[in-house]
Amino acid sequence: MPDKSVITDEMRAHLNVESEPITYDVEKGAVIKFAQAIGDPNPLFQDEKAARQGPYGGLIAPPTFLRSLIPGEAKKEFPRPFPNNLDGGSEYEFFEPIRVGDRITVTRAIVDLTEREGRLGTMLFTTAETRYVNQLGQLAATQRTTGISYATPEGEK
């Protein structure tokens, strides 16, 4: 462990502080465009007629469509200690389908800060949780993302 932590009290003050909520309409055109962009021909996402006969009675969004419902700004900007950032990964949990016509309210908060020494020098792992709540007040899904911030300019090399 380094003698001096890169995690400051100022950073810790961001833990569990939610971003400004943003509400999105799940539009048919946006869902179909997203399915086309990822190259997924599943009729539940693209074929309104077929989807109407299916288990949801209409079009639903592909699971990772939620990625396009971008959270609002944090109430205060997080003080990044290093200039370089990598997307470490993502973990979705799904509780309700995302249907065309839903209204989804998105909030995001940093839930964990961890410091590690590795091949990129000192790295800060920032875990954030994004919550997606539908118009019925149901928690439809969560996404946990891990960002890796580091000083070494050589990235993944």
Partner: peptide, 15 residues
């Protein structure tokens, strides 16, 4: 179509 995805996690190990 009648299956339900409950959890999907990925880690990006290389570009």
């Amino acid at each position: 179509p009648h299956g339900q995805l409950k959890k999907l996690s990925v880690s990006y190990r290389a570009m």
